[in-house]
Design a protein around this nucleic acid. Structure first.
Lengths: 403, 403
DNA sequence: GAATTTAATTAAATCAATGAATTAAATATA
DNA sequence: TATATTTAATTCATTGATTTAATTAAATTC
């Protein structure tokens, strides 16, 4: 267990608390921090001085609260520390540079070729990380966060090894990157990363429960409760793609019947649309269309495509209703490539199912958001995983000593 | 937020940690506590002396660890503090007296009459609590825990009011009991109570995730993660009875289609068996049989009844598979009246579905238990809710001062 | 029976947060 | 404009829970 707390522990907990409060509040005075944390102003003075000294936070401007002396605005110092975020998908990867507040400073997308081996793919990811780190001059890269597709199994005792990335089980990503770049490395399931990413993005407080749906080639979910991810026994919590929505439904490759993923995913959309095309239905699309073309057709109002898309979104709605019944989240966020096709349509379809099928009291206390823009929550989340990882590690406040 | 920690906070956290460690370990030496907590032996000496003084823990016997001086065995002192646990069901209530380790010292069952109003029912519950408290002499009753059927909505800011118990929404249980008996009162959803009850029963560590299925007149679940219940936005997490298992299935009174509860619950079992009987199928049962008779018939091997029971257990298995996919628990516990009918049969049916439908890696890392004996997890859980509630409250260590 | 090992306690030392007093800077008021 | 009031932030001595180091106690080993 080793959960006992002594003075060092107190110091660390309070400093991390101040950082989290600043992340949430954006910018506030020392007096605000004292009120929010319950700590005394004298303590806040000390903590702020230290965190300022190691360049984690900075003063900028003043806060006028009406009467009395103005407070000095404190916020996270986004000018010094950097983390690299990488999102690995089955067909491409994204890599970007982020500041300590989780803001994306730059990012790029790189397609995988059909024939590339896992080792070659991992090699290209490393080169891209290298090139990002080389560009950074005055600033300091302190960690790398990687979001990979699930399911992957985490060895929770030793985070060094023991996870299994479906397509390249033999590569110990964490260890190799740590050795090569000499910084902390954190690996996370892509939906979990997306959950943490939206949790930061939406400025959500610790008391809120957030569920993120990653609607892409498969359907995954991540759960943030009490500011932490719910990981489960092997770290594979959130495999909602294999939730049964039709007990006697289609056989899934997982062995189960009627899995959500059989009715809703970008893969299913591509397959079903193409199948309809071969049957000679009218559409602006030709047979053999990929997701990109199907997305364009949907946005152009192609009836066949939109109908299929709506069907999938309704099934996704069933998944959302199930999760709302099971976990009663405050916030539901749906993102990834399926959401980006027609976010407004997805919202309508999901909300209709929720209205039809969900207890009204619970329904009205749940915010449902679709992330339709180009922002990739799992990429942002990869960076957040790294930042949160640093805050959780006992080493968090030795950053300064490394200089 | 007010999450900042000072010396008082440290003291409280460490003392609660020691109590929890003793709950888990059962009995161990001061040196063991030091190792488990990460605190120094000198600190443990201080903490143990204090907790002993307020009669929360006691010394009994010695621990021989091989070489060297023997340690003194420390364990929770079960001889002084008492909590009352009450489980309210729709047709009856259970009330019992428990020690601080969650052991049941006595309990009794009381049926509700058909025509009784909520007020009358609540009156009888209060009388029973009164009679339990009156019997207690030297010992000290410090809290009452109540498990009530869900869904009930918790006002998480003020725990005084604002919850809604389906059958008697107008009764502020917590406030009334607190006023009448002058002790702390904690109200919880019955499946959540069952979850905490099994979590203590199974001596599970904080790092394990446990899911409890309450398979009774409805299907509910409770989730324990990191030693705490997952409550959700309104405290109604765990309403898995309304999880869709057939997207185009039977219409449920909740407005949703194909809810698990439409295929599996003691109510459904009674209805379906009786319906088959009216159609003249062979059975040792007569039309209009209640759950008690159906249970006996099932245990006597009545084919029709067993077949229906197995069908329901298989649907329950689908629910279990969904929860395993969604939350990846370490431990699944299934209890309540449906489980008590034929626990072995239920286990076989559920395990078969899990084998057929679940990813083998996840499956093999999940323990599935059926609570078939007479013990009621929600009753035990009601007591645990009270004990955990005391540990969470800032007042935990003022118990001694009340003397 | 002495050496070794482990358990538990004692008393001085540590140091993070606190309390009280002080300084600083804004608005309100006369 | 001068003064009072209010709020923000800092300084420094104090507090007190945990720790460190030394000591006592009681078991096993050889």
């Amino acid at each position: 267990m080793k959960n006992g707390i002594n003075q060092d522990g107190v110091q660390k907990i309070n400093r991390v608390l101040i950082i989290r409060l600043l992340r949430e509040a954006g910018s506030c005075s020392r007096a605000d921090l004292a009120r929010m944390s319950g700590l005394r102003p004298a303590t806040i003075t000390n903590i702020v001085n230290e965190l300022k000294h190691i360049r984690l936070i900075r003063e900028e401007g003043a806060i006028n609260a009406g009467r009395g002396r103005n407070g000095v605005a404190i916020s996270l110092d986004t000018s010094y520390y950097r983390v690299v975020g990488v999102r690995v998908s089955r067909k491409y990867f994204l890599a970007g540079l982020f500041d300590i507040a989780g803001n994306e400073l730059e990012s790029s997308r790189h397609e995988f070729a059909e024939g590339e081996t896992p080792k070659e793919r991992f090699g290209r990811i490393q080169e891209q990380i290298e090139s990002i780190i080389e560009q950074v001059k005055e600033e300091k890269v302190v960690a790398i966060g990687i979001a990979i597709p699930g399911p992957f199994f985490r060895n929770r005792d030793s985070r060094e090894e023991g996870f299994e990335f479906q397509d390249w089980p033999e590569i110990p990503i964490e260890r190799l990157l740590k050795e090569r770049f000499g910084v902390y490395v954190f690996v996370e399931h892509d939906a979990n990363a997306g959950a943490l990413g939206s949790y930061w993005q939406m400025n959500v407080g610790q008391e809120k429960m957030l569920v993120y749906f990653s609607a892409g080639q498969g359907i995954g979910a991540g759960f943030v409760n009490g500011g932490k991810l719910i990981l489960g026994a092997l770290g594979v919590a959130g495999e909602i793609g294999h939730m049964t929505v039709e007990t006697n439904g289609i056989l899934c490759k997982c062995g189960n019947y009627g899995c959500l993923e059989m009715y809703c995913s970008s893969t299913v959309l591509v397959n079903r649309v193409n199948k309809k095309l071969t049957k000679g239905n009218y559409s602006i699309l030709k047979e053999g269309s990929d997701l990109d073309k199907i997305g364009k057709a949907a946005r152009a109002g192609d009836k066949l495509t939109v109908a299929e898309y709506e069907r999938e979104c309704s099934y996704l709605g069933v998944g959302v209703v199930n999760i709302m019944n099971i976990l009663n989240p405050d916030i539901v966020v749906i993102g990834d490539e399926l959401a980006r096709i027609l976010p407004e349509t997805m919202k309508e379809c999901v909300l209709k199912v929720v209205r039809d099928r969900m207890n009204p009291i619970v329904r009205e206390h749940t915010d449902i958001h679709i992330v339709g823009d180009e922002e990739d929550m799992s990429l942002k989340g990869a960076a957040i995983v790294a930042i949160e990882g640093l805050l959780d590690e006992p080493i968090a406040f030795e950053w300064a000593e490394e200089q």
